[in-house]
Amino acid sequence: MAEIKNKTNLSCTVNGRASDNIVSDSLLLADFLRETLGLTGTKIGCDGGECGCCTVLIDNAPQHACLTLAAKCNGKAIETIESLSEESRLSAIQRGFNEKLGAQCGFCTPGMVMAAEGLLRTNPDPNEQEIRAGLASNICRCTGYVKIIEAVQSAADELKMSGQAL
């Protein structure tokens, strides 16, 4: 038998929808999203805070879901990669990553895109240096980052042209 774990009520919003659950105190947000809610877009690529694959937004700020206890997210707004596509259309950042080949194997991509989302929400017109600084918690092993930088630049340009803000 599994031991009885300490539990907590967790009321938060996930991708804009209210979510009310009883979770164990030790449950990581990454596992809550992936295993409880089935939002497997959020990836786990390391043993804690070293790769950025699990990056999600919590109250607009990028955070590692693998180092965040789900129970600490009570009352918070959590956003994952699954929230970005509107009615199956890619968001500007997603389109940037798709068109500029910012994603090769795609495993770091959800975290990378969410970090970029967090960046563009606070700085809609970042220069190259600022893009690098904003994505520096995220490791990509395929691209050498060249096309990731282009992807974010292209998304920022698109948003600027269309007058949209994130």
Partner: peptide, 12 residues
């Protein structure tokens, strides 16, 4: 699923 030991979380 990551292995986590059981603990009680207090949020004063």
């Amino acid at each position: 699923m990551e292995f986590m030991p059981n603990f009680k979380l207090y949020r004063p």
